[in-house]
Design a protein around this nucleic acid. Structure first.
Lengths: 351, 351
DNA sequence: CTGAAAGCGCTTACAG
DNA sequence: CTGAAAGCGCTTACAG
């Protein structure tokens, strides 16, 4: 059982000094072509792989970024991670992914762990607990280490860091407006996210869109879901009481639950009631009828976040940037077509 | 902009030697309680975080494991990753996740990258390309570095390494048998995975279950999906030609596609035809009707894989272990109940 | 109880 | 063109 080959091993194998090996491998102009070749050959023969972290001890760059994310099960976060990893690996970076499971303590533990693993920078989307309690003391402590940090999606606007979000307000506004323009008269907002930054923005967008449509004086109808235990009963009652003909659901799961429950209690979708959800995930595509959604461009969020981090790495004192990505409306079969007299244009029918 | 505090900084701040700091922080019995306290205080005050990799340069252990996985978008892999990360973080390990995107080259690149980042061990599920070409030369090269490696799910039985899989054969057998026992007379097998180890085992389980039911002499009917471009036409034709009354689909997506297509061309599920899929993911739960599936216990696969790796770490020369996890059958609404005269028992109805 | 020295694997001025 | 030396942040025998 041989162990890992080091520069020293190569040096003694070739009878030259370690410095020569290092320089040869680094293709330094100081070294003769002949020795370079000899070094490269035996390096290959002995399966030499540089010890990345020994190298970074000197260079102070680990070419590693850390990610703290609530989970990987949600399709949205999975796609963001994919976007991050893709962009990172294209630039020779490796990604250390950690999950907070929406708990503040493990979020902080993960952050500290990443610091002591000397990541070059960190990407974070806050846990529900952190957002609910609105306590960012630990986060500010982490910031004193002066590592570049980029927030994405679940962010806090008061923290002076780069960030990438989608315009949740605009997304909800767009969806609500579409529902209205396609003939819905009473549009309800269904949300299980009332305590997150994201949930609040979506609600505001919804309300604002209703205000905009003053002609019919639609008043907001917000249904908040604490948990899914008794979703069906509560939701069905709410439907019967308020008789909405359009629903904007603030996430993928609640949209699917709404869709299925509505049909089980006798509604036809979209004839009796239209439904739009957030997140263009697998459930939305495979539901019956397929679900119209606001797409969050998750991979793009990941890619842009990494990009911002890299920019910050090369220019630590640049101006803080808060990127906002425009959400898309993907129309499928849970909504009706636009009324004819409307002159606005919308994106073409999604897959 | 202060930079990261080191042991040296603490030493000069307190007027003692670096060795003393290191020992105090490590709670060595050599150091007096008083200095230990002083050290801890100023460490906290200066926000000292140990440089993990500098430490591991000596100890040869990075407490990091690398993971190479085809992707993170599939619910199955997302759940496996969750299982790995959970188990790992409970034991103080950090996880470096890389994606092969089902390409052999990036699989190998990732593997090398992990080696040069000195991970203590590696978890891998092979890319489709590797499994299709059945070329494991690169993998064998990686094995010469003598890092503990555990394969999971998409494995190669000929490679002498620890592994964790579910019993795909048994899963397909169980599902096929259930279809038959619930009255299906012509059961088809639908697969987009024909070239993976996993796809092959499932097909064999299906065929074996049919053989078992010799009384009616059912003959296998395998529908292979190259891609989803023209799925609908091909599948519909196949249905009309062979008129099956039961379908076992080898993965989540094909099951959902089948379910939706069947209903669009006029079949009633499960009255006219039953469908069982593989993977207990979000689509299966949210489909209409909800989909009966073989569950792969993905998180458990992740957890067990990490566990095997850790075992191997403490005992490098232990016997190779190939763990096989028993799949579960989760019955929902895309299948009929068992015929009454059957005496076998099955798990209770899943959510 | 404390400190000086050597070393983990690597890089990089500096000498020759 | 090659090598000896110092140093990245840390640990750990070894002296005192």
């Amino acid at each position: 059982m041989h162990s890992i080959t080091t520069i020293k091993d190569l040096a003694s194998a070739l009878g030259v000094s370690p410095s020569t090996i290092s320089k040869a491998l680094g293709n330094s102009p100081e070294i003769s072509l002949k020795t370079k070749e000899r070094v490269r050959e035996t390096a290959k023969a002995l399966g030499y792989v540089p010890n990345h972290y020994a190298r970074s001890l000197k260079s102070k760059m680990t070419k590693t970024v850390g990610v703290v994310v609530p989970n990987v099960i949600d399709d949205f976060f999975a796609k963001v991670l994919h976007g991050i990893e893709k962009e990172a690996s294209e630039h020779g970076f490796t990604v250390q992914i950690t999950f907070s499971n929406d708990q503040k303590k493990s979020e902080y533990d993960n952050l500290l762990g990443l610091i002591n693993r000397s990541v070059d920078g960190i990407l974070i989307s806050f846990s529900k607990e952190t957002q609910k309690t609105s306590n960012y003391r630990e986060m500010r402590k982490i910031m004193t280490y002066n590592k570049p940090i980029v927030m994405f999606d679940r962010i806090n606007k008061e923290i002076p860091l780069d960030s990438v979000t989608i315009d949740d307000f605009a997304g909800a506004f767009k969806a609500t407006k579409y529902l209205s323009d396609s003939g819905c008269r009473r549009i309800a907002f269904l949300s299980p996210l009332s305590n997150t930054s994201v949930g609040r923005s979506r609600k505001e967008g919804y309300i604002s869109a209703l205000r905009h449509k003053k002609k019919n004086g639609m008043s907001p109808l917000c249904i908040e879901i604490g948990n899914y235990e008794n979703f069906r009963t509560l939701f069905a009652n709410s439907m019967r009481e308020h008789t909405p003909d359009g629903i904007l659901a603030a996430d993928e799961l609640s949209a699917i639950y709404a869709l299925n429950t509505l049909q089980q209690i006798g509604y036809k979708v979209p004839q009796d009631i239209s439904v739009i959800g957030f997140t263009n995930g697998p459930m939305a595509q495979s539901s019956n009828p397929s679900l119209s959604v606001i797409s969050q461009h998750a991979e793009q969020i990941g890619a842009k976040s990494f990009h911002l981090l890299r920019t910050r790495l090369v220019n630590p004192n640049g101006k803080i940037r808060n990127m906002v990505i425009d959400p898309g409306l993907i129309l499928r079969n849970s909504t009706k077509p636009l009324l004819l007299d409307d002159t606005k244009t919308y994106p073409p029918l999604g897959k």
